[in-house]
């Protein structure tokens, strides 16, 4: 069953048309990639799904129910979690408090402790540093915290906005491995990235967005095809 459907999505900021007629779907247990150059409209798409960017036309549906016009907190509580661009950790709060904030997105508070425990298992470093001030963590640790914070809500859909931004290659491995594990657990993942090759290799499908429009869709085999990637980016 398709869990997330984006249909002819149109995002406008005044005169700026950031996303034009974008359609995509994500199934449970699947990673769908969304790549494209700066300003392509990737973040705008995620924000529109979250109800935090103005949707001018089109529809976003979660398990059949439309999300358009809902408040961000209601979208989060209906089962979509976002790992925002730049991580957006609350630097003055402790690591644990950051995680507890993620619990706000849960549909029910029952089982919250287990969810936190599972997030700790996926990212042991978050558990080790749980008493520290989040702002004191390194970029990679903060990114793991941001993903853990999204996961404790136990969403059906996980949206990630450039999780590998500014990370050392070794940490990128950690993050991408975690995403693969998350997929195994049956979540639907929509992954926005700039690292085209790695994303195409990881994702089940990968859409290329440019200037707000969907240009083409690549599958995992295209990862090796550098020419096709370059063409997709610079056409």
């Amino acid at each position: 069953m398709t869990v997330l459907v984006v249909e002819n999505l149109e995002v406008r900021y005044g005169a700026v048309r950031a996303v034009r007629g974008l359609s995509l779907t994500v199934e449970p247990g699947e990673i769908v990639g969304l790549i494209g150059p700066n300003g392509a409209g990737k973040s705008s798409t995620l924000h529109a799904i979250m109800g935090a960017a103005p949707v001018a036309a089109g529809d976003v549906r979660l398990a059949g129910a439309s999300l358009v016009g809902r408040k961000p907190e209601d979208v989060a509580r209906s089962g979509i979690a976002l790992v925002p661009e730049g991580r957006r950790i609350f630097g003055e709060l402790s690591v644990e408090e950051n995680l507890r904030l993620g619990l706000a997105g849960r549909r029910s508070q029952a089982g919250a402790d287990d969810a936190v425990e599972r997030a700790y298992e996926l990212f042991p470093i978050v558990r080790d540093f749980r008493r520290r001030t989040a702002g004191a963590l390194s970029g990679g640790q903060q990114q793991q915290l941001a993903i853990a914070r999204a996961l404790v809500a136990e969403p059906d859909v996980l949206l990630l906005d450039e999780p590998s931004l500014g990370l050392a290659p070794r940490i990128v491995d950690v993050v991408f491995d975690a995403l693969a594990a998350i997929r195994e657990s049956g979540l639907a993942v929509l992954l926005v990235e700039q690292r085209a090759q790695r994303t195409v290799a990881l994702a089940d499908r990968c859409h290329v967005l440019s200037n707000g429009e969907l240009r083409l869709t690549l599958d995992r085999d295209d990862a090796a095809d550098t020419e096709k990637l370059v063409a997709a980016y610079f056409s």
Binding site: A52, P72, E97, L101
Partner: peptide
């Protein structure tokens, strides 16, 4: 308290707090 934590978070970054499910 939870609502206290949420208030502190909202004071730092309301937009992100809301996207985490914190009710404005």
């Amino acid at each position: 308290t939870t609502v206290g934590l949420q208030m502190r978070a909202a004071a730092m970054d309301f937009r992100t707090a809301r996207m985490l499910g914190v009710r404005a």
